[in-house]
Amino acid sequence: MFFLCVNLPFLVFQEMLKDVVRTKTYQNVIYRNKFLFQNKVVLDVGAGTGILSLFCAKAGAAHVYANYLIVTVVTVLKGKIEEIELPVAKVDIIISEWMGYFLLFENMLNTVLYARDKWLVDDRVVLPDEASLYLTAIEDAEYKDDKIEFWNNVYGFDMSCIKKQAMMEPLVDTVDQKQIVTNCHLLKTMDISKMVPGDASFTTPFKLITVRDDYIHAFVAYFNVSFTKCHKLMGFSTGPRSRATHWKQTVLYLEDVLTICEGETIIGSMTVAPNKKNPRDVDIMVKYSLSGRRCVVSRVQFYKMR
């Protein structure tokens, strides 16, 4: 196995390791599917603490290249994947936790795709091999008032000019499932074994159907991850109805407060693209409209994940 380290604060590493959903899912995928790993050469992209590398070694991988560990089947290999050379021509498996907040913020997807095209054998076993991005909507009056409307009166001063900037910054936080007021819509599914780097930029339509009379203050995005090469389909969700992960959910506050009645439909589209100056950042554009009994609105909003 080849181990590629990323430099992050130790508290970040600890947070990821304590994310039981994330860590136990990878552990179960590896230990319950040892047929994928036994006597195989595996490339761990962005390995951090090396926990995935250790799981693979214990599952019977032929060799491990890691930058913090030197044991029987582990060797040091450190550097950017685009700059290093592996001591073998091909690897059998690529494993990575490449996902970022909102799936694509500060992600390592392009690094995984680079490694896949350069070193992976033709049958292309990438773990995980599928990721799906979803959208829903929530009532969130209390938090929006605290985060956004706060700028209307700051100790007696009108700082509302800051509101627009605050509105453009998505909030990464854990959403209470009781706040959800629409269905969940699948925005995008990525097949990591087949996609190319440009596929991380996309425009996709969505339709959200309200499930009760209420208000909408924000859209919420989250993602699911799947390991389809296992004996049995495995994976996890970062959605608000699932056990919390360190990715949490991404909240996109709306300039409007939408007054909704049960069964009404919000239609729109979302455009996602890496920022041109910093590809690890994400630019998001959301178009949405509602023609309801109590509310009629049509708007375009822009968000920047920095």
Rank of each mutant, 00 (worst) to 15 (best):
E97V: 04
L120W: 05
C295G: 12
A89V: 08
R22H: 03
S53N: 04
Y26S: 00
Y114Q: 00
L8K: 15
L120Q: 01
V211C: 14
K163Q: 04
T259C: 13
V257H: 10
N28A: 11
D145R: 15
E82Q: 10
F206E: 05
T203R: 15
E15Y: 05
L8C: 12
E139G: 05
M99L: 13
I260P: 01
D173E: 14
L290N: 04
T25M: 02
Y134G: 01
L103M: 09
G100K: 03
D176S: 14
K80R: 12
V181S: 05
G292Q: 11
L258F: 02
F202H: 07
Y134H: 05
V112H: 01
Q249N: 00
L187F: 06
W151M: 05
D256A: 14
G239C: 01
I81T: 00
C230G: 07
A141R: 14
F55A: 07
H185P: 04
L133Q: 04
L17A: 11
A89E: 13
V220A: 09
F10W: 00
V91N: 04
H185R: 11
S291L: 14
G239D: 08
C261G: 12
T174C: 12
A218I: 05
N110W: 02
L171Y: 11
D92K: 01
A47N: 08
V296S: 14
V41R: 14
V41E: 10
D283C: 10
F150G: 09
V71E: 07
Y68G: 12
V112D: 03
G198Q: 15
T210E: 05
K40A: 05
L254H: 00
C5F: 07
Q177K: 11
F13A: 07
L135Q: 06
R124Q: 12
F55G: 06
F2M: 07
I70S: 11
Y31I: 07
G268N: 02
R22M: 06
S132P: 07
I192N: 06
K34S: 13
V272N: 13
T265C: 15
R294E: 12
C184T: 12
I70M: 10
D158L: 06
Y101S: 03
Q301N: 05
V251W: 11
N107M: 08
S237D: 02
Y143P: 03
V125T: 14
Y215M: 10
K90A: 07
R280F: 09
V20P: 08
K163W: 01
L113F: 01
G198W: 09
D283Y: 05
S269H: 13
V175G: 08
K277N: 15
T75H: 12
T25H: 04
Y215C: 08
Q301H: 01
L186R: 10
I94V: 03
W151E: 08
L8Y: 12
D145C: 15
F105M: 05
C261T: 15
R22C: 02
D281W: 13
K287H: 14
S201A: 15
N107H: 12
L104N: 03
